[in-house]
Simulated assay, not measured.
Amino acid sequence: MDDIFLINLKQHVLASDRIADLLSSLTERQAAKSESTDRRLLTLQREVGDTEDRLKRLYRSIKDGIVELDDILRERTATLKSERERAKAALDRARAQCGTVAAIANGAPLRIKLRTLTPLKSQYNFSGAHDCLTSPA
């Protein structure tokens, strides 16, 4: 009985063309998610860089004597620092999520060993998983 079930499973559910279509669909979906993640990471990196630039300009203005350090300026500095920390935390979270997605894309949780699927392995390259951006563009 088990053998009949496994044979039917291999012939109908795990047919080569069906698996190929499924893997193709998954690859396309992963590529779309990768593009979205890349855009999000670039936006966050840009936000961190812009905030740091504004803080540097503010510090330079204080140092050069262009503006005096008063309560309003202290509030502005504190606001910029909190924006920078928020953006850095969001960027770190996005990079951590990217690492999780890359691990899944590499097939970490997929451990299927069926003789009929062996030829398909060479048709699909899973080693090109999404790489997270590590330096600002």
Rank of each mutant, 00 (worst) to 15 (best):
M1L: 12
M1F: 11
D3W: 13
I4P: 01
N8S: 11
N8T: 13
K10H: 12
K10E: 06
Q11R: 12
Q11A: 07
H12V: 13
L14T: 13
L14H: 04
A15D: 04
S16L: 12
S16T: 11
D17C: 12
D17K: 15
R18S: 04
I19H: 02
I19Y: 09
A20P: 06
A20K: 09
A20S: 13
L23R: 00
S25P: 09
S25N: 12
L26H: 06
T27I: 01
R29W: 06
Q30L: 03
Q30Y: 11
A31Y: 01
A32W: 00
K33H: 08
K33T: 01
E35Q: 07
T37A: 01
R39M: 12
R40Y: 07
L41A: 01
L41M: 02
L41D: 00
L42M: 08
L42D: 09
T43L: 10
L44G: 01
Q45D: 03
Q45G: 09
E47A: 14
V48Q: 03
V48L: 03
V48W: 00
D50M: 08
T51Q: 09
E52L: 01
D53C: 05
L55K: 02
K56P: 02
K56E: 10
R57S: 10
L58N: 09
L58I: 00
L58M: 07
I62R: 05
I62W: 00
K63T: 12
G65W: 05
V67Q: 02
V67F: 00
V67L: 11
E68S: 03
E68G: 05
L69Q: 09
L69F: 08
D70F: 08
I72P: 00
I72S: 06
I72L: 11
I72A: 12
L73T: 11
L73D: 07
E75F: 03
R76S: 04
R76C: 02
T77A: 09
L80P: 01
L80M: 06
E83I: 02
E83R: 01
R84N: 09
E85S: 05
E85I: 03
R86K: 14
A87S: 04
K88F: 09
A89T: 04
A90R: 00
L91P: 00
D92Y: 05
R93W: 07
R93T: 05
A94I: 02
A96T: 10
C98F: 01
G99N: 06
T100V: 12
V101T: 14
V101D: 08
A102D: 01
A102T: 05
A103G: 10
I104Y: 02
A105K: 05
N106Y: 06
G107Y: 04
A108N: 11
P109K: 03
L110I: 15
I112L: 08
R115Y: 14
L117I: 14
L117M: 15
L117G: 05
T118F: 14
P119M: 07
Q123S: 14
Q123T: 15
Q123D: 13
Y124M: 13
N125A: 14
F126W: 14
S127A: 15
A129S: 13
A129F: 04
A129D: 03
A129G: 03
A129C: 08
H130T: 15
H130P: 06
L133W: 09
T134E: 14
S135C: 14
